[in-house]
Computed example of a mutant assay.
Amino acid sequence: MNLQPPQDDAPASGLVLDAYLPYRLSTASNAVSRLIARAYDDRFGLTVPEWRVMCVLAEDGAAAQAGVVARTVMDKVTVSRAAQGLVRRRLARRSDHEADGRSHLLTLTAEGRRLHGEIAPLALAYEAALIAGLAPDEVALLKRLLGRLQAAATGLAGEAGLQ
């Protein structure tokens, strides 16, 4: 696939920012993340990456940092900082990874599980408020389409050697 822009001197045309899907996805994601981040920070002192790591650990149990990176599609540094913050607050613990001596396993502590249980209903309430104007079939379609867009972006990144 050729992703190179035209090489002539003609001005770029046809790009209307508000109609450009990557821009719309980014701004929508940023707006939702800001809303949620304020709630998590104000009420619980958590960053969005810390909350995402907590969710992975709550769903999956013990996880290596590389697994959290793959699951959340956050970069290694962001996951590492989030994990350190959770460990510092005693919401998660690090233990040796018996199968891989270079890695550690993260697990939620009892306090981390309690806090996750307190925040999860709030997260679901925010989701419900965000999708309140959509019909259930629209929500299902949106989730399917987002999955397809994510898969396409992952595939394009692989083709371009950006993974």
Rank of each mutant, 00 (worst) to 15 (best):
A19F: 01
P22Y: 09
T78D: 03
A66L: 09
G67L: 11
E111H: 05
L106W: 04
M74W: 00
H104I: 12
R34D: 10
R43C: 04
L115M: 14
S13Q: 14
R114M: 06
R114Q: 06
R34Y: 01
G117F: 13
R94S: 11
G112C: 07
A37W: 01
D100Q: 13
A64N: 09
A28M: 13
G67R: 06
R88G: 03
L106I: 10
V53M: 01
Q4L: 15
N30P: 00
A39T: 08
S80I: 04
S80T: 13
E111Q: 04
N30M: 08
D18T: 09
L108D: 04
V73L: 10
G14Y: 03
R43H: 12
R71I: 13
A66D: 11
L25W: 08
L21M: 06
L35C: 04
A62N: 04
Q65C: 03
A19D: 10
S33N: 13
R89F: 07
R43T: 00
L46K: 04
Y40C: 13
L115W: 14
L15K: 06
S80N: 13
K76R: 10
A70L: 12
L108S: 03
K76Q: 04
A66Q: 11
P22A: 14
V68K: 01
S80Y: 08
T47W: 08
M54A: 13
A82N: 14
R114T: 03
R114W: 03
I36P: 01
Q7V: 11
V73T: 12
A58R: 15
S33M: 11
T78E: 07
T109P: 05
D96V: 09
E59P: 00
W51G: 10
L3C: 05
L105P: 02
G101S: 10
D96G: 05
V56E: 06
S33G: 12
R71W: 01
S80D: 10
V69F: 00
R71A: 15
F44I: 04
A39V: 10
Q7C: 08
R34Q: 08
A12H: 14
H97R: 14
K76P: 03
W51T: 07
V77M: 11
A70D: 15
P11N: 07
R38L: 07
V87Q: 03
S103Y: 03
A19V: 01
V32I: 14
R114S: 06
H97W: 12
P11F: 07
D75N: 15
I36A: 09
P22E: 10
V87E: 08
V32L: 15
E111C: 01
K76W: 03
R24S: 15
A31P: 00
D75H: 09
Q7L: 15
N30L: 15
G61A: 11
F44A: 12
A19P: 00
W51C: 07
V79Y: 06
A92P: 05
